[in-house]
Design a binder for these strands. Sequence first.
DNA 1: TGCAGTGTTGCTTC
DNA 2: CGAAGCAACACTGC
Length: 301
Amino acid sequence: MPELPEVHTTATILNKLIAGKKIIDVWTDYGGSIHKGADHIKDPAFLKNFKKIVTDTKIQRVHRRGKNVLIELDNSHTILVHMKMTGHLLYGSYKYAKGVWQAKEQDLQDPFNRFVHLVFTLDNGKSVALCDVRKFAKVTHIPTELLETSSHLSYHGPEPLDDTYTAKDFQEALQSKPKLPIKRVMMMPEIVSGIGNIYSDEILWAVDVHPLSKPKNIPDTVYKKMYTVMKEILSKGIDFGGDSTSDYRNPYGVAGKFQYHHMAYRRTGQKCEKKGCTGTIHRIAMNNRGAHFCNVHQKVY
DNA sequence: TGCAGTGTTGCTTC
DNA sequence: CGAAGCAACACTGC
């Protein structure tokens, strides 16, 4: 599940690989069904226009906002890709055969080539492919100057890794939802941009806070620590090349390694690794998803 | 075989 | 308006 560190890894690598290249063709098998209220390429009419706008353009840079990958073009438009749960962007040489796109390069380790649903062909003989098992991904184009104010991004909270983002900003944002469970609030894009299920579990484990704690009850000192730890864990995720518990791969098709360093996420039934802690990792259902926490050292506020 | 589990986000409903 | 719940998907694992 691409969260901030995974999307960051993808955008950083892609930027090095494709900035300055031209998009000469677009292929996709999306567009087969009308998506309600669609302003993305699953809508057939939108798709037609999308192809027209992005073909024969030069890529200026690839960057990120929240969990969105932004591919800025030289025609004042930006392609926005939200990979949702199972999407990832790959770079390589693809050929179309037997109804699927297949990578030609041996060094491309991605096992999900049969789930490629969108391919941008570049002028250097390479392609960028969106691989998306569950077809949840959102792809759209926006005039670059309207990006931040568009419906896709306007509601987003600040970037947690920005230097200008302070502990006070963080605490105030979380406490703006005083009664909702802290874990849920951390995962809301309008509160903090980029934290999902994995990283919220890990952050709360590290600061000894139970996921059901109410934001209004958590003391200032704990928020201070949470702010620091949040930055550290997201940075750690980036340093490990992201988390590949599910099917995330970087643009080379290579898995990240953060999943080997989980303390809480998906460790149900295992002993808590915190020094001196005698607890066990438990899993509870929260809003149709799993929250993982230690039953001893994580306190309910 | 069948169904629960997986999870982000937007839309609908209360 | 805030919050809860579900839909958009398709595959894996038990």
